[in-house]
């Protein structure tokens, strides 16, 4: 069976026999190109840009060091512009356990006193079959509390960031993606070329656990860093915006030194500033253990 376009190409080749050599060469080239275009899928020809999934895979694979230590100041501002400040430390390290890669992270609050010692330990498995593991340490009762996957979208210790945000790692396989556009993102008097990607959690259970039905993610084209995420609820109402600012190269690793989470519904904002970042210092494995939090050894 011939498609209509192929029959037209056949007719054109018969016309070629009756015209001069220059025109014949030109027409043959055109004919060949037309044949090629008609055989290959259109998107492969046009697609110089990666797909939405490829972009998000690049985000997930972005170099972030084998281990990292961050000192952080977290500032909460309510709608009356009243301010609360927390200091915290974060440690993250990549592990290989039984051939599988996993990222472990410890986050501990150092001040104020009413939350001092509160900490989170998370094991982020790259294998999407297993749910990530999370534990919360509460010094008031000196116990670790296991956190279910359903709590990933809950606020982390009174901030606008969720447990999922604090976990830092990006679970690429949890979403369906759609490429929206290439655009310009303006921040700190600078303009950046970004991809706008739509991410929809794959299941209703994931939507419920993460606390949103749809997200629009802006990814910087040059370094594949998520610089903005807009979260929408089931009525497609924008509820929260996370953004990354003051991106610096530290030990050859791109690091957003200021992260913001803005809750639109109640006009509450959390700013996480990184005051110190050290990568690849070979942190001991024992740091990423529940006993580290229970013994309150991180000061």
């Amino acid at each position: 069976m011939f498609r209509l376009s192929e029959i037209r190409n056949l007719k054109a080749s018969l016309i070629v026999l009756r015209i001069g050599s220059f025109q014949r060469t030109f027409l043959l080239f055109s004919l060949g190109l037309t044949c090629l275009v008609s055989i290959l899928p259109v998107d492969q020809v046009l697609a110089n840009q990666p797909t939405a999934l490829e972009i998000m895979q690049r985000v997930g694979e972005r170099e972030d060091g084998e281990d990292v230590e961050w000192d952080m100041i977290i500032t909460l501002r309510n709608r009356l512009d009243e301010k609360r400040t927390r200091m915290a430390k974060l440690f993250r390290k990549d592990f290989v356990v039984k051939g599988e890669i996993q990222t472990r992270q410890v986050t501990v609050f150092l001040s104020p006193l009413n939350i001092r010692g509160v900490g989170m330990l998370s094991f982020d498995y790259k294998n999407d079959v297993i749910d990530d593991d999370m534990w919360l340490y509460l010094p008031a009762i000196k116990k670790m509390r296991r956190i279910s996957a359903a709590e990933r979208g809950d606020n982390f210790v009174g901030t606008d960031f969720t447990f999922e945000d604090i976990k830092q790692g990006f679970a690429v396989d949890d979403y369906h993606y759609k490429f929206i556009e290439e655009t310009i993102w303006k921040a700190e008097n600078q303009k950046f070329e970004v991809y706008r990607i739509e991410a929809i959690p794959k299941t209703d259970a994931l939507k419920s656990a993460l606390g949103f039905d749809r997200a629009e993610i802006l990814v910087r084209k040059d370094i594949f860093m998520r610089v903005e995420q807009r979260f929408f609820d089931k009525n497609n109402i924008l509820t929260r915006i996370n953004s990354a600012h003051d991106v610096q190269k530290i030990q050859e690793i791109w690091t957003a030194m200021r992260l913001e989470s803005y809750n639109i519904l109640n006009n509450h904002r959390t700013v996480l500033e990184i005051t110190g970042a050290v990568y690849n210092q070979k942190l001991p494995d024992s740091l990423f253990h529940e006993r580290t939090l229970v013994s309150e050894r991180i000061r």
């Binding site: 009762i141 116990k143 013994s295």
Partner: peptide
């Protein structure tokens, strides 16, 4: 007095310990 090495942790002195998962 709290002292931690690479794979060992010492806490010496008067202290309270929590074991278990109950509330």
């Amino acid at each position: 007095l709290h002292w931690s090495q690479k794979n060992t942790n010492w806490i010496i002195g008067k202290q309270r310990i929590s074991w278990g998962k109950s509330d």
